[in-house]
């Protein structure tokens, strides 16, 4: 930050105030309130709320379905962001080769960004409908081959496919921009040294792409969680048998459908902590491998 130019005391604060106010009201205050409720037992209609210490946490952490939901959430975060970043990386590497298709691809790969996660859900749940969708003919030959309504694995497969589809644009843009910023001379120098394309990918492109990869992974992890709600609500509703009841969805149904404000707030606190830990771990372990120098 070297660009400080104007000297004024009050003005910058006035300039920041609107955003800080909005952030305080709709970002920090909800966090504070979640912590408050997590330590209270709150009557839905506000009749009374009593301080209960860690009782809510003991209850939540002691329940099996919370843990299975938390495990599923963590696995989903890792696998969903991994699969979508991986796909986008492969596509970006291919598009970076300045082929005839690259131009069209660069435009079309952004299109999924226009489709809301819930819309994707509505669309894919129809396309993958075991009796009315694409798999219907196969299901007639082998009954039960594909049924995401009863088979948890199929349900997850459906979620992942929809998630990859929707997550391509953002990662693709960032990664392609990163690849294109790698100077041609480096490639040439590598080629002169006798490094083949695979070798150059490993030794030049990927290392120089680490800043973008890092950003994309960090943001995809958060995005896969927030996008999961729209997908789950329109595709599986947490089923079959609670298999896809990820924490984001569980908190919603506990709080909004079952009036369990304290339980939902407690799980909110735990989920936020989980995301914070995952993000922190990424900074600790991934950022070290990031090379910012070019």
């Amino acid at each position: 930050m070297k660009q400080e130019i104007f000297r004024a005391r009050a003005l910058p604060w006035w300039l920041c105030a609107p955003q800080l106010l909005v952030l305080f009201l709709f970002f920090y205050l909800p966090i504070i309130l979640a912590f408050f409720w997590a330590f209270h037992l709150e009557q839905p209609f506000g009749g009374g709320s009593q301080f209960v210490g860690f009782a809510n946490f003991r209850r939540v952490l002691g329940s099996g379905e919370f843990w299975s939901s938390a495990r599923a959430t963590l696995a989903y975060m890792v696998l969903a962001s991994g699969s979508s970043v991986g796909t986008a990386l492969v596509l970006a590497l291919a598009a970076d080769r300045r082929l005839r298709l690259s131009g069209i691809a660069r435009n079309i790969f952004l299109w999924p960004k226009a489709v809301a996660s819930a819309s994707i859900g509505v669309i894919f749940v129809f396309l993958l409908n075991p009796y009315l969708g694409i798999p219907a003919p196969l299901n007639e030959i082998w009954p039960g081959l594909w049924n995401p309504r009863t088979n948890p694995l199929h349900a997850y497969a459906m979620l992942f496919v929809a998630n990859v589809w929707s997550a391509i644009p953002f990662s693709f843009i960032i990664l392609l921009a990163g690849l294109q910023a790698i100077p041609e001379e480096l490639h040439k120098a590598g080629a002169i040294d006798g490094a083949g394309p695979w070798r150059r990918l490993r030794d030049i492109q990927l290392p120089l792409l680490t800043p973008q990869l890092f950003v994309v992974v960090v943001l995809e992890v958060a995005d896969s969680l927030s996008g999961s709600f729209g997908l789950i609500d329109t595709m599986t509703r947490g089923g079959p048998g609670g298999a896809t009841n990820l924490l984001v969805y569980k908190i919603y149904s506990d709080g909004f459908k079952a009036y369990d404000l304290s339980g939902a707030a407690t799980q909110t606190v735990i989920l936020m902590a989980l995301v914070a830990v995952v993000t922190g771990a990424q900074y600790l372990f991934l950022e070290r491998r990031v090379r910012y120098d070019r």
Partner: peptide
Amino acid sequence: FTGRGRGLVYALVVASIMLPLELMII
């Protein structure tokens, strides 16, 4: 602008990227 608190303001703002609204919906 010069002045104190800019770093803090920036950090407060950027921190909000990590936790989407969906997590604190209740």
